[in-house]
Write a protein that binds this DNA or RNA. Structure first.
Lengths: 324, 324
DNA sequence: GTGAAAGCGCTAACAA
DNA sequence: TTGTTAGCGCTTTCAC
């Protein structure tokens, strides 16, 4: 293994000079810098991450607790994760994946000094991990919006505003009886924050516009077609729908278009997933990659000791069938 | 921060004794052991991961390069990853997520001693990362099956056998003209190993049973319906289909059942994704979690210096509509 | 059965 | 502008 001492010897300088060339924390003469960099390249030197983090008390690793649970939208999780990884790497951070979605995984990573910061996805309204995060004192960012006061930084899509926006749009289209088909029952049972906020916003938006709205859980499987069909049959007045379940959308979209051609359907989804889905009136984008990017920037800001907004909600945007 | 010295002082023993209590590499008297463990608990001691790995020359971290690319089946990737994480954690290993799917990410992680081993998903037939892995000399396992000789350990589902099995089953059902709707064109263009193997096995199976088979790329979007429809219209003799595109399956399944009720459809998919999809004759399971588990066991075996099969292909299993 | 002490490879004072 | 050196917190020889 090539060590900093090898580089120093090859370049004919001391090891601290090599260290300072790499960190840029000291001014180095051009000549010295050149020789050191040449030696680094020649030897293929890579600093030993553990040695570095032991000495510098910083790992340049962010712990990411992403759930691989059922019912949660895999595409969205994947995109958030890829946004996180990309932004982290762009700032020379790596990602340690913690999927056991319990608090112990968080303490293990932080307590063992494996990470400089923690990011937690899919936060529930009353999430037991929050207390752990507070105690740990490790810089942390949540993706999601738990209830109650806490001084953790939260980043999320503004699902409540999205619900309102959809209701407003459906009212504008002239509908007076509308419905939200949303997360599967198991997600609501866990009190997943985003699902509850979307429901709340949608109903509030309906009230504001004097129209009647209802919300219905929707399974992610092919069963969704039957569920949706039943409800549209039972309540034939429903003429506008907000649909938020990426997994079920392909099953359902064509079906609604066929059975109720005059029904307007707004999808809440990452745009690329609905690009070719027929029968959609509009789409409200879930900016999944951006959520990951913004959350990561928040972590980087915390690590840099900068002040960070305790809550950052990305506003919804409405796109027509051909793109805004 | 609590260090091993604090524990030693509290327990009234030396630092090395604490270390040996934790590692179990030395026999310790019951009394000493009790006092040390009490001190560890009392102080909430967690060994510093970097210090440990610097001294022991082992990180207990596995680098996982998982693509978050388009066209690749997200559910399957997610399940493989969750299988990997679960098995790794069960053996006290953590996962460092490397998504930039280039060779540089691998050298960075291995060269910087951030990981003890590497795992690479979604290997292509001629994958530029293989040369890097060979040079690095880091214990590595591929999920996928590249062409050509290499001494890397490969784990995958036996897509070729699955193709054969599907062809045999369709022949058994009496069909003489069958088709495989498979991966999107962009996946084939990248020469992704599994797609090519599936095609090969399917066509070979058809030949073996004296029936005519054809293979067709299939987009993952809602467009799939049109593509499939066109082909079934152009070639009305097709009466049996093997379908391998999880994303498109929900769009297409009901459509085929409706337009061609006598057409048998076999899905190649993780079982839980097809549980409620109507109109499927059979399903060949893609055991995604198991792939992750088996691949991780292979890495653990390599790390333990045990001998490992250079190629481990998980055999396909056929399930009827109600399960096996 | 236990302790003392020499590193592991790096960073960052402190010195020059 | 550069070098010397004391740690960072642990593992593991060597010694008792």
């Amino acid at each position: 293994m090539v060590t900093i001492a090898d580089v120093a010897a090859t370049a004919g300088v001391s090891i601290s000079t090599v260290s300072y060339v790499m960190s840029g924390k000291r001014t180095i003469s051009q000549d010295t810098r050149d020789r050191v960099e040449a030696a680094i390249t020649k030897l293929g030197y890579r600093p030993h991450a553990s040695a570095r983090s032991l000495a510098s008390r910083s790992t340049r690793v962010i712990g990411l607790q992403a759930p691989l649970r059922s019912g949660v939208d895999v595409h969205v999780i994947m995109e958030i994760v890829s946004g996180v990884v990309a932004e982290a790497r762009a700032n020379r951070y790596d990602i340690l994946l913690l999927t056991s979605d319990d608090a112990e995984g968080l303490s293990r990573a932080a307590g063992g000094s494996m990470v400089d910061a923690l990011m937690v996805l899919d936060v529930e309204s009353e999430d037991p991990r929050l207390a752990t995060l507070q105690e740990l004192g490790t810089p942390s960012v949540l993706i999601g919006l738990p209830d109650g006061a806490n001084d953790l930084v939260c980043v999320d899509f503004d699902f409540e505003a999205a619900g309102r926006l959809a209701a407003a749009r459906l009212a504008e289209l002239g509908h007076t009886r509308v419905a939200l088909f949303g997360a599967p029952a198991e997600v609501l049972d866990r009190h997943t924050s985003y699902a509850e906020r979307l429901n709340r916003g949608f109903l509030a938006g309906c009230a504001e516009h004097g129209i009647t709205g209802s919300v219905h859980p929707c399974p992610s499987s092919a069963d969704a077609v039957g569920v949706v069909d039943d409800i549209l049959t039972q309540t034939p007045e429903i003429s506008g729908v907000l649909f938020h379940n990426e997994a079920a959308l392909p099953h359902v979209a064509a079906h609604i278009a066929a059975r109720s051609p005059h029904c307007d359907v707004i999808a809440l989804s990452p745009l690329h997933l609905v690009r070719d889905v027929p029968g959609l009136t509009d789409t409200i984008e879930v900016p999944a990659i951006e959520i990951g990017t913004v959350a990561t920037r928040a972590i980087l800001a915390l690590l840099a000791g900068e002040s960070v907004d305790r809550m950052q909600l990305l506003p919804p945007r409405l796109f027509g069938p051909t793109g805004s």
